[in-house]
Design a protein around this nucleic acid. Structure first.
Lengths: 211, 211
DNA sequence: GTGACCGGTAGACATATGTATACATGCAGA
DNA sequence: TCTGCATGTATACATATGTCTACCGGTCAC
């Protein structure tokens, strides 16, 4: 898809983006230097840095999509599904740290163009996730709209945690477990959404007296 | 607390940070220019730009804290409390857009120093929120640890949504409602966390047949 | 074979930046 | 009154950046 110098420049960007750099902070000369090209070659491929940023986003979006596609796997309960999904997604992020960093950073970054683009891509992922849940009937008694809404939140939540997950190896297990709890609480909360608070309290008391 | 030139520079930063700039992207000369000072005056007050960033964070942290302090108000049910809190917090963000933008942007930004500082401040806020919930016994049947965990997530969630809230006036109502649902689902989900999935389904069916 | 085009290069430009040194002013304490 | 110190300024330098114009070597179509 991307050829020659274009590819070199995009990959150079991914190499340059570490803990301490963001996509929008990269300079054209810097990029060319890292790619082993003449500064002016940049102009042969991109009109300006914004257009370049979009290409980078497209590149990593492609990557992420193909990663998420292989996620369709079996799971009997929703709890099991959330566990598997979370494990998979984080391991994916872990093996693509640069792309992940770009996504997290630019989602709230200073370039409106990139923000919109990323948002659109996240929405697409959320939609996919929701439809997957609906098709496999993993959650009962929750309307499709709510499933979409929760998926939307979940996708973002995972993305934010991904940075910590990458940066703090000793916290990975904790983060993973927290994420699972987050998801399960959302869906369980949605299931009992229309119950009166008093009933809920009674219910909780029941459980506690049982134990 | 901050005096003269120091203050001028910090305020200049807040003025410069709009949709399209981030704290870490500001230059020393740029800052001085906006503050109406000589570039070198910057050095009279700050060792480097990182130290400056920390001061800015401190400045807005002060501001936010005093904002959140007046939040202690009455509410009978947790649902009511989440509604009031969400309304209040968003209106606060709306009236301090620059500070909000800084916080959101730098929490995942390229400067590790600022990231850590912001994280610490968010954790403090989360702790405060959790303790408030515990003191006022707004949520029953949920352990303090879980309340802390949910508070932690909620604080972050609200902060992220704050950007959209500021930027997209036509979506403000929706965002506010979504945030309330988010919070309520978390706590309700936590209440029924230890129930078997089957029981939950039965419960949901009950409600549906009632209706 | 020739002309067009694509990808890459070289050099030069105006302009911006961070920083160092040296100078000016005003106010506090002796 | 003199001294010190904090604050602000002026000038200067090395270095980086985006961008412009011009040049070069292949490759493909005709």
């Amino acid at each position: 898809m991307l050829s020659g110098g274009k590819l070199k420049l995009v990959q150079a960007a991914l190499r340059l983006i570490t803990d301490t750099r963001s996509l929008t902070s990269l300079g054209l000369r810097e990029l060319a230097r890292e790619a082993g090209l003449n500064p002016n070659t940049f102009y042969r491929h991109f009109k300006n840095l914004d257009e370049f940023g979009l290409q980078v986003l497209g590149y990593i979006a492609e990557d992420m999509k193909s990663g998420v596609r292989q996620l369709r796997q079996m799971a009997d309960t929703s709890e099991q599904a959330s566990h598997d999904t979370v494990a998979f997604v984080y391991s994916y992020f872990l093996s693509n740290p640069a792309a992940t960093t770009v996504a997290v950073r630019e989602l709230h970054g200073p370039s409106p163009v990139l923000r919109r683009a990323l948002e659109a891509q996240l929405n697409a992922s959320a939609r996919e996730m929701a439809e997957d849940i609906l098709e496999r009937e993993l959650v009962a008694g929750v309307t499709p709209e709510v499933i979409h809404e929760i998926s939307h939140m979940t996708i973002r939540y995972i993305l934010f945690r991904a940075m910590d997950y990458i940066e703090k190896p000793e916290q990975r297990e904790v983060i993973q477990k927290e994420t699972e709890r987050f998801i399960n609480r959302q869906f369980r909360g949605a299931m009992v959404e229309h119950l009166e608070e008093l009933d809920l309290h009674a219910l909780t008391r029941d459980r506690q007296s049982q134990a």
